[in-house]
Simulated assay, not measured.
Amino acid sequence: MSETYELKAEVRDRVGKGAARAVRREGKIPAVIYGDKKPPIPIALSANEVTKKIHGGGFLTTIATLDVAGERIRVIPKDYSLDPVKDFPVHVDFLRVAEGATLVLEVPVHFINDEKSRGIKRGGVLNVVRHAVELVVPADAIPDALTADLAGLDIGDSIHISHVTLPEGVRPTITDRDFTIATIAAPAVLREVEEEGAEGEAEGGESEA
């Protein structure tokens, strides 16, 4: 689980596009805190601090504490918007997190032991179907990532969610099937050879006929 962090925030007196632009001109990012059956709170945060957290990784899977005018509010970032041209954050949504709460989050998948995969050694390609998996997780035990082990896998093999060891108390939101996370695909050259072979067999069969 990623370490929590704390950010100082101030309450915004005004909302709307004009007010948001004014906040950004001051070197801050407009944001809102919502959830837990309480009224939303419009806030402003240091643009520099938030940018560091976003680019530091794990932003959407790490619990944070916001100090809003002396009130400490435990939250998790639920979404953020980036400027389409300059790629800096322009808005963040935070969800209040109560003690003992469970959350629905997308957790990234990390793949290990590719050097121990027979298929990859033979030139196979790791075809990632899901770079992240949506999970139901305890708020106080959010995994940084899921680990998928490629050791022993050959061309044509697949990694399903059942092959991944989930931390205690964590479960996927999809429960009606053993969904695929990745496959070991044949290299393009091998696929071409197989296709040519299949075409040759078909032509031979037609000649005999």
Rank of each mutant, 00 (worst) to 15 (best):
K52H: 09
E195M: 05
H163T: 06
E168W: 03
F94L: 12
R74A: 14
E206V: 15
I142W: 04
L66Q: 12
P39H: 06
I120A: 01
P84R: 09
D178M: 09
L153F: 00
V50P: 03
I159V: 11
A186V: 05
A182I: 00
N48V: 13
H160A: 00
I41L: 15
E203R: 03
I29K: 08
E26G: 10
V193W: 07
H131T: 12
A22S: 13
V189S: 14
G152W: 00
G200R: 15
I155C: 05
A186S: 05
G200I: 11
L135A: 02
D176T: 09
G16N: 13
A139R: 04
E134R: 03
I41E: 13
V68A: 12
D83Y: 12
K121M: 11
T173Y: 08
A98R: 11
V136M: 10
G205A: 15
A151N: 04
L82I: 04
F94W: 13
H55K: 15
A31P: 11
A186Q: 03
L146K: 04
L45T: 02
L135K: 05
E3P: 09
T175E: 15
R177Y: 07
A209S: 06
D87I: 14
E115M: 08
A20E: 11
T175K: 12
I29W: 07
A31W: 10
N48L: 12
I174G: 00
P167W: 01
I174E: 10
L82E: 05
H110R: 15
E134I: 01
V104R: 02
T180I: 06
Y80G: 09
V85P: 11
E3A: 14
E199P: 00
D176M: 05
D67V: 08
R14P: 04
R14V: 12
H163W: 06
A198P: 04
G119T: 06
K53T: 01
E192T: 15
A47H: 00
R25C: 08
R191G: 14
K8G: 15
D36G: 02
